[in-house]
């Protein structure tokens, strides 16, 4: 799992559609925290952290060795009473923002985080343009113009 190359056929599965993680994520239960509340908190934090060597999976969902190690680290920190921000900051200081599945809001990610509002706004502006349009006669076709001329001449 740590090797930088990837299995060709796994690559194929990925190519078609599927998330390329085919190993099972059945793990050692001993790594879970005994206190269910703490364990739930650790899971919530872990699901925010990316398994670095996988596709877009969180460390909670991956069976990669590094993900397992990071899960352990998360649980140690949670057991010490650290909150989500502290654990994520610890991880970011080592692996950078890459480890966060939800990127921080910075100038560079403004477009990303602003996209829902931006897209909605663009759509609403477009719709308003359509709805505010005044009913107006369609420009006459050549045929109609000829007919009009004919009619006015008759008069």
């Amino acid at each position: 799992m740590f090797q930088r190359g990837r299995h060709a056929s796994v690559a194929l599965a990925a190519m078609l559609f599927l998330a390329p993680v085919l190993a099972s994520a059945v793990d050692d239960p001993s790594e879970m925290l005994p206190d269910p509340k703490q364990e739930a908190r650790a899971e919530a934090i872990g699901s925010q952290l990316r398994c670095l060597v996988c596709q877009n999976e969180s460390i909670e969902d991956s069976s990669a060795g590094l993900a397992r190690d990071l899960r352990k680290v998360v649980r140690e920190h949670v057991a010490k009473g650290e909150n989500q921000q502290q654990v994520i900051a610890w991880m970011v200081s080592r692996y950078g923002d890459f480890i966060r599945l939800s990127p921080p809001v910075t100038v560079a990610t403004l477009l990303l985080w602003g996209m829902p509002a931006l897209a909605l706004l663009a759509g609403i502006v477009g719709a308003v343009v359509i709805f505010r349009k005044k009913p107006q006669a369609a420009p006459l076709t050549d045929e109609e113009r000829a007919r009009l001329e004919e009619l006015s001449r008759e008069r």
């Binding site: 670095l52 590094l66 190690d69 080592r94």
Partner: peptide, 14 residues
């Protein structure tokens, strides 16, 4: 052996 030093260095693979 545990891979913990590597995490402190920010190593994700070898």
């Amino acid at each position: 052996f545990e891979g913990r030093v590597a995490i402190d260095w920010g190593v994700s693979g070898v």
